[in-house]
Nucleic acid binder design. Sequence first.
DNA 1: AAGAAAAAAAAA
Length: 870
Amino acid sequence: MQSCDLSRPPSWHRLWGKARPIEGSTGAWHPLWKHALDVAAVGQALLDARPAFRDRLATALGQDAETARRWLPYLLALHDLGKAARGFQAKVPALWAEDLLGPFPEAAGADPGHPALGAGLLELFLPQACPGWDQDGYQAVFGAVFGHHGRPVAWDVEERAFRREDKRQARAYIETMRALFAPPDVPEPQARAKASLLLAGFAVLADWLGSNQAYFPYDPAEEAVAAYWSKARRHALLAVTEARLSPTPPAPPLRFTALTGGRFAPSAVQRWAEETPLPPGPSLTIIEDITGAGKTEAAVILAQRLLAAGRARGIYLGLPTQATANALHQRLRGLAGKLFEGPEPPSVSLIHGAAWLARPTSPHEGDSAAESAAWLGQSNRHRLFSDLGVGTLDQALLAVLPVKHQALRLHALADRILIVDEAHAYDAYTFAALERLTAFQALLGGSMIVLSATLTDLQKQRLARAWGTPLPSRPPPDYPLVTHLAETATEIPCAPRPDRVRSIAVRRLASVAAVCAEIRAVQARGAAVAWVRNTVDDVLAAQTALAAEGVAAQVFHARFAQADRHTVETDVVARFGPAAPAASRRGRVLVATQVIEQSLDVDFDLLISDLAPADLLIQRAGRLWRHLRPPEARPLPQPEMLILSPDPAQVASAHWGRDLLPGGFHVYDNPRVLWRTAAALFASGRLATPQDVRGLINRVYAPDDAPDDPPPLVDPAGRAQAQDWADRAFANGNLLDPLAGYSLGNKPWSKEADISTRLTQETSRVRLMRWQAGALQPWAAAADPAHAWALSELRVSRTRLAAAPPPPEVPAAALADLRARWGRYDADCLPLLLSPSPEAGLFTATVADARGRLGTASYTPTLGLILPRA
DNA sequence: AAGAAAAAAAAA
Ligand SMILES: [Fe+3]
Ligand SMILES: [Fe+3]
């Protein structure tokens, strides 16, 4: 048969595979068969560059490594089989090959897409393509490569969808590939789900790189199959290397002193990370210790040792917020060179939705194939393949949700040590997603390190169960604690870092007036004070109340335009940060929401907080006497946290606390958690860290009724717990099932816009702007308009702000034009037109709440957005 | 009515 003569072009040479030439391309189109070979060659080069991955994949397939190396390129070559069908070929009429396909079709039928066409065609040639396999086997393995457009295929295209010419060309396609690759007869896959998941991401990666015209230029010339295959392999080698997809060699196992420059002695946890014998296979390590004890350094040491031992080829650090990711990326960027040692410096990426704001270039910049040296920088999905990635956990969680190209993310992570920082910082829905990610990582053979200050026993058990190594029903009470899960579970109590051991006083304040009086008194003595409140409205009310008593307080919350929030944050850190001179903090008062709970390195002489769950109070207390200052520089005799709280001894009804803190009791909706927190802290009058942490957290979050719990709070607590269960159930409906492998299952793949890594109340994305000189100007200034608009943005509950009728002088066309310039993903932002008011620095705008009631909102750069009272 | 937090462009 002519198509099998490797010294000639195949009979189906004229079928096109690609027809979108880049600028400067010499060829106008690329033959389908050449594209198939390009992708197969990239796959083989990737396997050769990453023997550990090759072996993992081979084992899942039930093949030995050498067989897999010969068989997988054949499999990849078939990924675009559906492009041989007339339905696809008709998309470019000028390239229609009438001699191969018959007359050009008059009416285009419904287009199921070439991935689905490929699946349909394969089913017509099973005895040739995969002799002896049953349906589960071929759908798992071939389905993984047909799903290279990011979603699994449905296998719903039937034989009657094809004509004789379709089948003839598909047969020729398969015969050419069998002749070239001579695929060995292989058994059905050993571990179907695992094999399909590993393959799906691998196929996408090979297809993306094999479609890069910088390495695989369009080449419509007729050419011997064997000759082009050698060419493709050379190109593939270069492409894999330059895209930085071959592993960077790790440095020899790193010592703590080498990482930190020897300024500190390692803590017990850090010594463990440095010295513990490594298990032969994948492992999950959970490190529990207080914030600031150096857990991240311990994790990096352990991760690097795992790299050096060949357990993975990179590291991804997932954090709860973009801001913490930015900060950690800054910190680690300079250290990355110590983790790897290659001829080139390791690739390091910041990975989250707003990372483009932190980079010099504009968003979604033209990823012309010519700058393929920057292949990793093309999108966040590409960046996950960096040697060291620092970003939000959400970027990793998208690997276990039914969204496009999740398998690519999974593929990147399976080869990396996944470090999850601040694992306690997630709600029920997102924590369920983290559990699922843990299960996927365990299945695919990746390793994980989870860090937390305040994980409950239940959360820890859930992670362990997801990993597949259950913990004893009562984990040890020790803290700090390392829990190490490999084949078996080991728990290693560690001594705390001596300089982090302390005890602070805790005292209850019963009213807002009492708080104001206390602030006035200590301000007079020169103390720097922070009052952490639970809602923005409460912060603004406190600022007003303090002002009435002659105390000028600075406010900080999240209802600022990004640019102003950044200014306030910089100012707060300058005033209360480690470098702040005594004079700048003396007698200063800050009233803030939860924005100062995390990641800000600030220090106060006195900390006041509205009652909040114990873990958050511990977090807030971390801002009290945080920095080392001589005692005589402290205007107060001891570190003390004051808590504005109802009296836990007086619980008359389920309404407890709602008169004093209505907003706070809505935000933290389990009053039993709040009551237990108050009862425990006020009974002892002290908070000792780290020793009290474990007991307090487990007591406060115990799922069952405790003897002391006030009966009126039992029902509301039950409702709050039921909500958590509902959120988990909703998550489980969305989250992919590892045992289902790469398949559609019953998951909501088609509703990608509704799939999220977090479960939230509806919010409005508001962009502040002004009407000036006949144009809409962003509130914030920046050289690049995309930056300026992003910096002018804030988020606010949709219930409070759902619409904003523009002033009459602004033409509707200007707003429509603006939305068009914002583009697809930002067009839903709400333009909020600020008008200057008689008061200097104060701007106003008309707003409507979700029920359409109009009111006047005001904005200032120091107070933020003030909404009309509900 | 009420917090903070995240995400989102491909391989014709
Ligand atoms: Fe394709
Ligand atoms: Fe392709």
